[in-house]
């Protein structure tokens, strides 16, 4: 379904975020992407829909080569790829409904979207999705009036409103408490199962990944160092991904305080994040 071939990314600052990453995602497969901060997890999933422009390598969505697309072609491809963000990334001053409908922007012309005249099917679908994520009572609330968990549900509904073929999910639970984190993860996995939707989930909480995901990829300093089932994650593998630490408590045990398992940052991660921010802004121009 999704295939990465020799993907590399070097930021303008000279930071190597990804080196020769190759992997493929089968239809309906949900992948957990783990690794320390600065390992290139965010960069990897942003390369897939080219929010970050890869330096070299190829990305295929089905038969479509995303890396070779023109601007217009890329817009069409992005419609097929839903994305869910760490800090929800809702447009805070728009209503919940507008946020969900914004998932449809790739399909409607400017003036229709400007006057909020979306096709009836899109609106019906938005209501259905909001019901599915349990927010039918909040349709006309402004996004900034919702709690963290509710906002992330809107984020999920927005991604699904695109009717995507693939979901990219960037640290969906990083800003949430442990209980809400589990609810959100469960919801995501359930929805992916219902629709047979493949997904890549960036996640820093190893235990959470093990609990919900059937295939885990470990990223370290921009390289894939592990690719296997959650059962294969042992102390040796975690050491390979995160570095030396006592892993006995982490493996196969949900850490109830929800603290990051790998918050010992690699050096240079700050620059990565800053470089990433700059590229994000580049999308505006």
């Amino acid at each position: 379904m999704l295939r990465l071939e020799g993907l590399s990314k070097v930021y303008g600052t000279g930071d190597r975020a990804l080196t020769d990453v190759s992997l493929s995602v089968e239809p309906g497969q949900v992948i957990g992407l783990i690794g320390p901060s600065g390992a290139g997890k965010s960069t990897l999933i942003r390369c897939v829909n080219r929010l970050v422009e890869p330096t070299s390598g190829k990305i295929f969505l089905g038969d479509l080569e995303i890396t070779g697309l023109s601007r217009g072609g890329l817009r069409q491809a992005r419609r097929r790829i839903g994305m869910i963000f760490q800090e929800y990334a809702l447009v805070e001053r728009l209503t919940v409904m507008e946020n969900v409908l914004s998932g449809r922007l790739g399909y409607v012309g400017f003036w229709r979207s400007f006057f909020r005249k979306f096709p009836p099917e899109a609106i019906e679908n938005a209501y259905r999705l909001l019901d599915r994520v349990g927010l039918s009572a909040h349709v006309n609330k402004r996004a900034d009036a919702l709690s963290g968990g509710q906002r992330q549900r809107v984020g999920i509904a927005r991604a699904l409103e695109q009717d995507p073929d693939l979901l990219l999910i960037d640290e969906p639970t990083a800003s949430l408490d442990p209980k809400t984190s589990r609810q959100i993860m469960r919801l995501i996995v359930e929805i992916c199962d219902e629709r047979g939707l493949p997904a890549i989930i960036n996640i820093h909480d190893v235990a959470l990944a093990q609990q919900f995901v059937r295939r885990i990829i470990g990223l370290q300093a921009g390289k894939v160092v592990f690719d296997g089932s959650p059962d294969e994650l042992d102390a040796d593998v975690l050491t390979k991904i995160y570095g030396e630490e006592d892993w006995s408590a982490t493996i196969r045990k949900v850490d109830e305080d929800g603290e990051e398992a790998g918050d010992d940052d690699d050096e240079g991660s700050e620059e990565h994040i800053a470089a990433l921010d700059r590229e994000r802004l580049a999308g505006l121009t």
Binding site: T95, E98, L101, P120, E121, I123, E124, R128, D131, R132
Partner: peptide, 17 residues
């Protein structure tokens, strides 16, 4: 709030003024 297949949803929406 179970979403049964029979549930019908509104097909229009206008932004609250």
């Amino acid at each position: 709030m179970s979403a049964s297949a029979a549930t019908s949803y509104p097909r229009t929406w206008t932004r609250p003024p």
